[in-house]
Nucleic acid binder design. Sequence first.
DNA 1: ATAATAGGCAACCAAATGGTTGCATGTCAA
DNA 2: TTGACATGCAACCATTTGGTTGCCTATTAT
Lengths: 104, 104
Amino acid sequence: MDEVFKALADASRRSLLDRLHARNGQTLNQLCEGLAMTRQAVTKHLAILEEANLVTTIRHGREKLHYLNPVPIHQIGERWIKKFERGKLAALGELKRQLEKRDE
Amino acid sequence: MDEVFKALADASRRSLLDRLHARNGQTLNQLCEGLAMTRQAVTKHLAILEEANLVTTIRHGREKLHYLNPVPIHQIGERWIKKFERGKLAALGELKRQLEKRDE
DNA sequence: ATAATAGGCAACCAAATGGTTGCATGTCAA
DNA sequence: TTGACATGCAACCATTTGGTTGCCTATTAT
């Protein structure tokens, strides 16, 4: 879980996921196109995404195809974000109450 | 958006949010209790959470009360996670297809 | 066979991160 | 009013991070 959050913390990595979401199964060089980064930097980002299980790769000859795995993202939504949606109104209500109380 | 992801990337900060979710409106010292960190470290974490608008504070005399703001978390869910839930099955389907193709 | 292509590995670097200690300030209570 | 309490500020430190360059290996196409 921590690895997923850490992986998502970087804008470059999120944009790599976006690219894979737009077109799945791209090679390293395809993913590098148009980015202001060296290939090696992208390799490192992809390694972190793979470590977090957000990306799966398949070697195909000399090419390495990268596939998005949306499951960990979904889990963040289910196990983490939903927890804070319950009681969202309650929290804001309490905050409002305190803000008003401030002026007493 | 980036600030929110960055803020959520640290386990200590997520646990601070958890604590506020359990009991909203705590002081700095209350939030420090039981943590293996100095007060100043917690202060820094709270500053980052505040910067990301995940926590709002209200001064009350010499105390500073911290309140959870669940809105940015909700936005991550709406604007980011949901995007990857659509097409989740499609992505996995394509992955499966490739995995099978590998053995040809 | 050999050149071009796709990717991997390792060393290095600057800046950001997460933490510390020490001291200062503001507020409350006796 | 003075001591205790709650928080703030700043300097410092080690490690991690995000990036680079240079070179190596494996596969494909001519």
